[in-house]
Write a protein that binds this DNA or RNA. Structure first.
Lengths: 218, 218
DNA sequence: CACTGTGAACTTATTCACAGCT
DNA sequence: AGCTGTGAATAAGTTCACAGTG
């Protein structure tokens, strides 16, 4: 049943399942049903079963899914098993430093291997155990070492140029914190994290006694 | 055409449109067509027109949409016009500090008004111009001042309790950076930012030549 | 007997295509 | 002429419901 084109929306749920299965495992359960997992995640049991079935039959009828083995299966589907994914980080401002200090990357199997910045004040400095390199040397570094992942944590104005450099250097997956829209060539993935957009969309749902802006009429 | 239930997926695109319209405005264009905007965003023109039509008819046939007025319309739909949305921040570790220093919130119309933490070392200290308050005093603060937004930037173990406190205090929109799944009551919105999940889902699409298993060097 | 795996039914979202303004 | 606004057509995604199985 392999080899069908799998919807991106399914791929995006896999890390969620894997993350929760890690939590379930640490609580000591050996098996979990699609219903049990769905309840924890706010996802329907049918959806979990369908998602997993794109990749094979991992469950046991009558019992559910073995927690740790399903988690490993998912990580293997995501090409995350038994390895550490190397990343470059561009930008060592406050956000970049916070990211460098974040333990979650390593737990998830990701590790920053090099750190770049454009600020002469930063270049050459040691930051959280990394020596900050000149972003001008990024193209050469990428030519030598094929790193597939990058995190962009530079000021908005600089982001587009940095992304160009990363794409030209063969980086295939870019996580950007800059609030700008960008297109990238086929074969490159760009995901953005923009907390302001998240807040803005939540604002719509506020039951706000203060303000009811009328839009109306045809 | 008012008062139909509007799909969440539409609401989530509105901040994207608003953000890009801001960029278009700063480039000096007065009008933009759905095709022009769609090209910049990687969204189809029909989708933009349909999304906007849930709320009214904001365009001019033959010319397109007036950039600044459409942006204001969208911000008004999102209940973001002409005001600053107040937020509390819980957690002043590295991430919390980075968020406090981020100018993007104010640009988007959001402002942190109070800062809380559980660490006795931090409580009472001044951080980026805020005095860190004891998270134990958060319930009382929320009782007095009706703040609708909160950002959770605490360690994973603490997140669930903090979210409970926020919900109990009447906060309606929570942006959490903790990598845990949580359900919240109706009427409360919880959005998570988890960079690791983003990276993991991108990993699926990598070319296999990048699959080299990292050698154990520890 | 409690669960998965899965086609079929249904629901939601996107695109098409064109009438209708400016 | 060039665009929006919008119903109709299509595609994508989710849930249902149940047969199959350990």
């Amino acid at each position: 049943m392999s080899d069908e084109e799998i919807p991106d929306i399914v791929i995006r749920r896999l890390p969620l399942y894997a993350r929760e299965l890690g939590a379930v495992a640490s609580e000591g359960s050996e098996y979990i049903s699609s219903e049990g997992l769905g309840e924890r995640l706010g996802v329907s049991p049918a959806q979990i079963r369908k998602d997993l079935n794109y990749f094979g039959s991992f469950g046991t009828r009558g019992r559910g899914y073995q927690v740790t083995s399903l988690r490993e299966r998912i990580r293997s589907i995501l090409k995350l098993n038994g390895r550490v994914r190397e990343m470059v980080l561009v930008g060592v401002g406050q956000l970049g430093r916070a990211l460098l200090g974040y333990r979650g990357f390593l737990i998830g199997g990701f590790e920053v291997v090099r750190v770049f910045d454009a600020d002469p004040e930063q270049i050459g400095q040691a930051v959280v155990g990394y020596e900050v390199e000149d972003v001008a040397s990024l193209p050469e570094f990428l030519r030598r070492s094929k790193v597939a992942f990058a995190i962009v944590a530079v000021p908005t104005e600089a982001a587009s140029t940095v992304i160009d450099t990363l794409v030209a250097g063969g980086v295939q997956a870019i996580l950007s914190y800059a609030p700008i829209s960008r297109s990238v060539p086929d074969g490159v993935r760009l995901r953005q994290i923009d907390p302001v957009m998240e807040l803005e969309s939540m604002s719509y749902y506020l039951d706000d006694q203060f303000d009811a802006v009328v839009e109306d009429q045809i």
